[in-house]
Amino acid sequence: MTAVIKRARPSVAADPAHWSTVPALALLLTLVCGVVTLALPQYAAVTVLALVGVVFVVGMQSFAGNSGIFSFGHVAFMAIGAYTTAITTIPEATKKILFPGMPEIALPAPLALVAGGLLAALVAALVGIPLMRLNGLAASLGTFALLNIVYNLANNLDAITGGSTGVSSVAQGLSLTHALAWSAVALLIVWTYQQSGHGLALRAAREDDVAAQSLGVAIARERHISFVVSAFVCGLSGGMYAQASGSFSPSSFFLVATFGFVTMLVVGGRLSLTGAVLGVLSITLLREGLKVVEQATQYTGAVEIGMSAAMLLTLLLRPLGLMGTAELVFARRGESR
């Protein structure tokens, strides 16, 4: 007989199932955007990028939160979305001069985003076949390998990606309203998945894989579905990033970005959709605050130190993040959801 070791698992009493989570979060984001537009117009660009972050982290949450597996590879899907959008929206004339090797496909901006998401989902569907059969740590490492492979390809397929210098002169057309609308779409997709039978089955497997399996949950298949859904949303965010920033390079989608997004998810709470949104907002706030400090004191590195400290403190003091498993809802006083 081998000794029985019970792995420490996050234990969740009830499932978040209130209808108003998505409207409440959309309202919260709208309020943030309203405040920024009226009072802090110099932060409009930062807010657009924060909304890109919301889409990404919400996408990552739909995999990490429901399956319980930390993914270090989702930034690769963001890269796929960004490159797809860049390739399909850079004007024909510019493309001939700067990137003669790029395929000549042109799409209108919103369709380009969806195309990026679909391509990311396709890649996830393919690489997920082997990867989603892995468990726990091995799966995390597998996604990390995926990140490294995509990074290496983006760096070296010069004809299509522009190599290590990256891509520039993507049409910058992502307004605050657009970004807000896409965030709402992402929230809706992820929430719908979370409420579906597939989401429930996957959460059951997260809590106790053996019990879930004995009840007929095909864990690898459920993980695979979640992986594809989250890849679509993350691909979407990549396209948004391309349209918001106008230029990027392979290193925009590597370790630093991965660390930033993982920090947001951990600090906010990886088991909660609200946590994903709040994580992005609070870390963005922290980052901008520290940037001001950095400029005032001439200490470079304060931002990174603050972010790693925030992540470490969260892991040590509040392992499930700010939100834990709670969600933001509209509820009448006295009504406990």
């Binding site: 792995r7 420490a8 698992r9 319980g68 597996i69 930390f70 726990g136 740590l137 995390s140 993982v262 951990v266 992540m311 892991l315 392992p319």
Partner: peptide, 8 residues
Amino acid sequence: ADPETMLV
């Protein structure tokens, strides 16, 4: 905690 948390 679980190994993934330690990894993070």
